[in-house]
Design a binder for these strands. Structure first.
Length: 424
RNA sequence: GUGGCCGUAGCUCAAUGGCAGAGCCCCGGAUUGUGAUUCCGGUUGUUGCGGGUUCGAGUCCCGUCGGCCACCCCA
């Protein structure tokens, strides 16, 4: 195959079944976010490169940008994350919205990195942010939104875990240990972030350079119980969601702008990349607006790639997804034209059913009835409506129950109106 | 970006250095008013691409592109 005919590495074609799968995921995201009273927003796919050069993003993301110079000599980049965009939007119009501001977006993002399991160069992400409320209740609400989003796919507390940590507790600990400088604290957190990945000697060496010891760090992780966690647990317990959350101070996250609560969602069974991550960024808006807008905020991102892999791997979530995809691709009714001389009447039936909101398919040409029933079956239709010699009556066949009855023309609209519309 | 494994039909895969195959899918028929399961027939192709070794390469070698995995980091 000629190279130009292939999609670029890390980019996906969405054939109808892939599109149905994608819509299942994004539709579920949207439904749950709206159920929490969040409003959908979006921003440009292409942004000025400077938006990511400022200190708000982590350093690593700069090296992963799809960037180029446009025809107007502007340096631009495809967005690698939503937070800088939503921060700009919030700073521009923070005063127009009652607080707390609860916004979500579902959008494609781009990162130039070598693709592998769970990582592509273009991916979708749900971003949810709650702005203008620094209370633990706001933290709990965001965690509940994240958990409910996962639950909506059929995931349980046995499948996934939200590992919760607190950068504030870490900063207190570091200050207590004599790490006062902010740059040093950030350096220490990046070492702590690698606690499970690097050999002990390397960690010891890096920590001692900062005036810390590995044993003190490990003791803190083991025994510290930040006060906020009890409130969080209580709040989630009231919703029956406490089993999803665990305190795990090993989570610190790479991005520089996080200030307090941070969290990541993991598969409990397999070692997999994080499904979602987020945290509190109470100073970001102030920093970016030079103090003009000073609002606390908490948010998270949930990507479609690792989540999709997990949903495929678990039998229960896979079956649920397959059913949703089949339903999304099916039509409600297939009209069988059993007698070509009744095609005019059949088209009238099709037109009426569609006007009543049903999805309807039918043969464009004079196919044999057997062929039409095969097509009806393949279309996923629950019902076949046979228009033929008995007109103005029709035969109505329930393709699932394999039963058949008569349907007079005058009853058609009532019947169509009585059909159950499956939940989206 | 660095390293390892892999690349055969639309899909899943087979073929000791010796005639490129099977199943699924798709198309047609058995069946001119009844679909899940049957039976028959048909198209699957520059073996990712380019070079090399060889009488002969899907198979061995080199390069390249693509995929998977690890590192890095993260959704």
């Amino acid at each position: 195959m000629p190279g130009r005919m292939q999609s670029l590495p890390g980019f996906r074609d969405f054939f109808p079944s892939d599109c149905a799968r994608r819509n299942y995921i994004t539709g579920t995201w949207r439904r749950v976010a709206r159920s929490f009273g969040f409003a959908e927003y979006d921003g440009p796919t292409l942004e000025p490169l400077d938006l990511y050069r400022k200190k708000n993003s982590g350093g690593e993301i700069l090296g992963q940008l799809f960037s180029f110079t446009d025809r107007g000599e502007r340096e631009v980049a495809l967005r690698p994350e939503m937070t800088p965009t939503v921060a700009r939007m919030l700073i521009a119009k923070a005063r127009e919205y009652r607080k707390p501001i609860k916004w979500f977006s579902i959008a494609p993002f781009f990162r130039y990195e070598k693709q592998q399991s769970g990582r592509l160069r273009e991916f979708l992400q749900l971003n949810c942010d709650l702005v203008g409320d620094a209370s633990p209740a706001a933290d709990a609400e965001m965690l509940a939104l994240l958990i409910e989003t996962m639950r909506a796919f059929g995931l349980t507390a046995e499948d996934i875990v939200v590992r919760v940590s607190d950068r504030g507790a870490w900063m207190d600990f570091l200050a207590q240990q004599g790490v006062k400088d902010e740059a040093q604290a950030r350096e220490a957190l990046s070492v702590i972030d690698k606690l499970e990945r690097e050999p002990r000697e390397t960690l010891e060496k890096k920590l001692s350079a900062l005036g810390l010891t590995l044993s003190a760090v490990e003791e803190f992780i083991k025994s510290a119980r930040p006060a906020f966690f009890e409130k969080l647990s209580g709040n989630l317990e009231a919703r029956g969601l406490e089993d999803f959350c665990e305190l795990d101070l090993r989570i610190v996250r790479g991005l520089a702008y996080y200030t307090g609560l941070v969290f990541e969602v993991f598969d409990r069974r397999q070692s997999r990349r994080a499904l979602a991550g987020g945290g509190r960024f109470d100073r970001l808006l102030s920093d970016l607006s030079d103090g003009k807008v000073d609002l606390p905020a908490i948010g998270f991102g949930l990507g479609d790639v690792v989540l999709g892999d997990l949903l495929e791997d678990l039998p229960a979530t896979k079956a649920r997804m397959a059913a949703a995809i089949a339903a999304a691709q099916a039509v409600d009714i297939y009209v069988v034209v059993a007698d070509e001389s009744r095609r005019t009447e059949a088209l009238g039936v099709v037109q009426l059913l569609r006007a009543l909101g049903r999805s309807v398919d039918y043969p464009l040409g004079a196919d044999k009835v057997g062929r039409q029933f095969k097509d009806a079956d393949a279309s996923g239709a629950r019902y076949a409506l046979v228009v033929g010699a008995e007109w103005p009556a029709m035969k109505l066949k329930d393709l699932k129950a394999r039963t058949e009855s008569d349907l007079p023309q005058e009853s058609l609209a009532d019947w169509a109106g009585s059909l159950q519309t499956p939940a989206p």
